[in-house]
Simulated scan of single mutants.
Amino acid sequence: MTTDSDLIRRSSRDPRAFAALYDKYSRAVYRYAATRAGESVAEDVMSQTFLVAYEGLDSFDHQWEDARPWLFGIATNLLRRHHRTEARRLKAFAKAAGRGSYDDGADRVAERLDAAAATSNLAGAMRTLSPADRECLLLYAWADLTYEGIALATGVPVGTVRSRLNRARRIVRDAAGLRNTDDKEIEHGRVITPARNA
């Protein structure tokens, strides 16, 4: 079976090998970028990620067979440029989540209000995270990277990743009023799933 590392090694001689890597991960990078910064930015971030990766083939550490941490690390660096936009989106989402039309039946009003309040609390909680903690949590929940993959993507030790995820879980749980929520729900993105539709 061909590993990502093998594809990257061959890419300097055969661009089709890099095209296979692009085909394998471009949608995942696009989804991650769209979730973090919106669809208007996602296409550019995805394209730039693979351009930077191709131009920097020598920077790939071949002790890793999986290229996802490397690619998501590049995408994360590009997304840092869009941090202000992301913060504005979360702020607008938190405000907008409390509004809406509830004219489709009285029985659904309470349900929608509860969902809107939970989503607003969640977006507010995400805004309270430091950029590094938010980035770490989103790489874990939305990019599905392991602790080691996040460490590689962000260039920090695994212990720092563990610390940031622990802090992010606690802040999200407390700020969103989810004190009884299991860490597994937060770890697997269930708690921040509503924000994916932002």
Rank of each mutant, 00 (worst) to 15 (best):
D23T: 00
E55I: 04
R27A: 02
D144C: 03
R162L: 05
L71F: 06
T2V: 12
R170H: 11
A17D: 12
R84D: 12
G73I: 13
L138Y: 06
V172H: 03
I150W: 01
F60I: 03
A42S: 14
R190I: 09
A106V: 10
G159D: 11
A110K: 07
L138T: 08
Y32D: 00
L145Y: 12
E111T: 01
R36I: 06
P194F: 11
M126E: 06
T181P: 06
A34N: 01
R13V: 05
G56K: 12
A67V: 11
Y140H: 12
S5K: 14
G177P: 10
V41E: 07
D4W: 08
T76S: 15
I74L: 12
L90M: 04
D6S: 06
T2P: 11
A125T: 01
R179K: 15
R89C: 02
I192Q: 02
V172R: 01
R173E: 00
G98Y: 09
S101A: 15
Y102L: 10
G100R: 07
K184W: 07
V29T: 01
R167I: 08
D66F: 08
F50A: 08
R162Y: 00
R13P: 00
A141H: 01
N166H: 15
D4H: 05
L71E: 03
Y22H: 14
T35L: 01
D14F: 02
L152R: 15
L90Y: 04
A117S: 15
T85V: 14
D66S: 11
T154A: 05
L178V: 10
R31K: 07
S120K: 02
A37L: 06
T3E: 11
A20Y: 09
E39L: 01
S47T: 13
L21V: 11
A94T: 01
